[in-house]
């Protein structure tokens, strides 16, 4: 009986599963999100529970800051922010929907021209564009000066009121509404519209029953984008509005800078983030994107 020498099994070649590979590849992004987003966010939330006007994180947590917020008139700034953002979203919907419809379905070469023209305006810093408006609207500025010189009409400064703030916000956030709307409308298949028209629907009925419901994903995404951006807007109200309106974002800024009250600023930020999140999730839950796109498979 001869013993066969046992041959050690060859080591299997090292294999990377797609899951492992994916994990490794997403690691940089994961770390960036962890240290750049999650950690600071948690810091802010935690800082909100520190005693007012202190700068240390290791103290006994307290609700004092939130009491301050509810006892004072910060709710006014929050309402202003939400109000301005809502008006901006609604105004932009009215302005952008027809334009987006044209760009997606009617204009041919013109659509890319409009896209480039609007995208180019994004190359200039927002603050510079807003100061441009200031030069235009201030007393004896471009508008007032021209009117005085040409028509001999004296007008006061057009700045520092609520309509001009909304004008500025509408102007700054227009691309964020327009492009999602164009994409949303482009997703409405032409043959589906033609079929509705062929089945007896008038142009208006085609719009109401086909275009509008099928472009809702674009409407929803554009509105959320503009709402989230404009609710945290600060420059429009500051530069164009002077101190006429104080938004929550400028309240937070002044707590962190002028007042040197970081815990109160943090508490305001936390409250504001929570509020925005609730609004966004409410909107997302209300309009089921998948259902709107007809892609939901319930079985």
């Amino acid at each position: 009986m001869s013993a066969t020498p046992s041959v050690p099994a060859p080591k299997p070649p090292r294999e990377f599963s797609p899951a492992f590979f994916g994990t490794v590849c997403s690691l940089p992004f994961f770390l960036l999100m962890l240290f750049g987003f999650v950690a600071p966010l948690l810091c802010v939330v935690w800082f909100g529970f520190m005693p007012a006007k202190t700068f240390a994180l290791l103290q006994m947590p307290t609700f004092a800051n939130y009491e301050t917020i509810f006892n004072q008139t910060y709710f006014k700034s929050i309402l202003w922010s939400i109000g301005l953002a809502t008006v901006t979203v609604l105004t932009l919907l009215v302005i952008c929907y027809p334009l987006a419809f044209g760009m997606a379905k009617i204009f041919r070469g013109g659509a890319s021209f409009i896209t480039y023209a609007i995208a180019t305006s994004l190359f200039v810093s927002e603050n510079i564009r807003l100061f441009g408006w200031v030069i235009g609207f201030m007393k004896n500025g471009v508008v007032g000066g021209t009117l005085a010189k040409v028509f001999d009409v004296q007008i006061d400064s057009l700045l520092y009121n609520i309509p001009v703030i909304i004008l500025g916000m509408v102007y700054v956030y227009l691309p964020f509404m327009l492009f999602p709307l164009v994409l949303g409308l482009k997703m409405v298949p032409d043959q589906v519209r033609e079929a509705a028209f062929d089945l007896g629907a008038s142009r208006w009925q085609v719009f109401k029953k086909i275009d509008l419901p099928l472009s809702m994903p674009g409407v929803l995404i554009g509105s959320l984008l503009v709402f989230v951006l404009s609710v945290g807007a600060i420059s429009e109200a500051k530069i164009l509005g002077g101190q006429k309106v104080v938004t929550i974002a400028s309240d937070i800024e002044s707590e962190f800078t002028y007042a040197q009250n970081w815990p109160l600023g943090s508490a305001l930020s936390t409250l504001f983030i929570a509020l925005t999140t609730v609004v966004v999730f409410f909107a997302l839950g209300r309009f089921d994107l998948e259902k709107l796109l007809g892609k939901k498979r319930s079985e």
Binding site: P189, Q191, V192, E194, A195, A196, D198, L199, K209, I210, P213, L214, L292, L293, G294, K295
Partner: peptide, 14 residues
């Protein structure tokens, strides 16, 4: 008159 399209063009949201 009425047409059945090549893509059928059913209304996906209905």
């Amino acid at each position: 008159t009425c047409m059945v399209f090549q893509s059928l063009a059913l209304f996906p949201h209905m």
